[in-house]
């Protein structure tokens, strides 16, 4: 049966999506870990179906300043991957690549920005490839775009695009912790409702 709204998902489907998040984020984290030369812990992902305001609260609150990387995906799954990097992770990535932290993360130079985008690109590719292999899907990843701003403003983008047909947002939320420090990052997979149907069908739980 086709899912008309995110809140129609049953417990088994939620479990399957959690496992999708597990496999995707496991792959993406391995990629990040080898690029950074750091140990990265990932938590068990959560599948959240929340209204817009609760979704923003769940990922940190509207006025928290964070780096958002938006990666559109299309093909057998349409939607977005959104990385939410804490400001200290941006500093860490820049210092890993260039040997020095940026003076001001709000005015990164072109090389620094492209290093962060490339990191996002590789991680998103790893995430999506793992899902694609699992479900026998073809999924394309578009180049990332980054901004550092208030979380509410960043999350308004998926809310507007995914929330057009209803008042809720579905996301698979993966938390990472780097080198056992306070450096944290989130990776969200936000499928459109139509492609969610397609994914669940391919995974045999439609």
């Amino acid at each position: 049966m086709a899912i008309g709204k995110y809140e129609d998902l049953n417990a088994m489907q939620i479990d399957v999506l959690r496992e999708v998040g597990n496999i995707g984020s496991g792959n993406a984290t391995t990629a990040l870990s080898s690029m950074m030369g750091k140990v990265i812990d990932i938590e068990v992902p959560h599948v959240e179906v929340l209204d817009f305001n609760a979704a923003i609260d769940a990922v940190g609150g509207p006025e928290k300043v964070i780096a958002g990387l938006l990666i559109r995906i299309n093909g057998d799954i349409d939607g977005m991957i959104m990385f939410l990097f804490e400001q200290n992770l941006i500093s860490l990535i820049v210092s890993t690549f260039f040997g020095a932290e940026p003076e001001n993360i709000f005015s990164l130079n072109e090389a620094e920005l492209s290093a962060i985008n490339e990191m996002g690109n590789i991680m998103a590719g790893s995430y999506v490839n793992a899902i694609a292999q699992l479900a026998g899907l073809t999924i394309d990843v578009e180049p990332p775009s980054m901004t550092i701003d208030m979380l509410g403003a960043i999350m308004s983008v998926p809310a507007i695009e995914m929330g057009e047909m209803g008042d809720k947002l579905l996301f698979i939320d993966n938390n990472m912790k780097i080198d056992d420090t306070s450096i944290r990052s989130k990776m969200l997979l936000l499928p459109t409702i139509d492609s969610l149907d397609h994914l669940l069908e391919k995974l045999g739980v439609a």
Binding site: F52, I56, E63, A153, I154, S156
Partner: peptide, 23 residues
């Protein structure tokens, strides 16, 4: 005032909406 919300105030009330992006 949350996302897709509106509220009415008067007198000494202060109305706030956080982090407008494309909204």
């Amino acid at each position: 005032v949350g996302i897709s919300d509106w509220k009415i105030g008067k007198g000494d009330d202060i109305l706030v909406t956080y982090a407008l992006g494309s909204c």
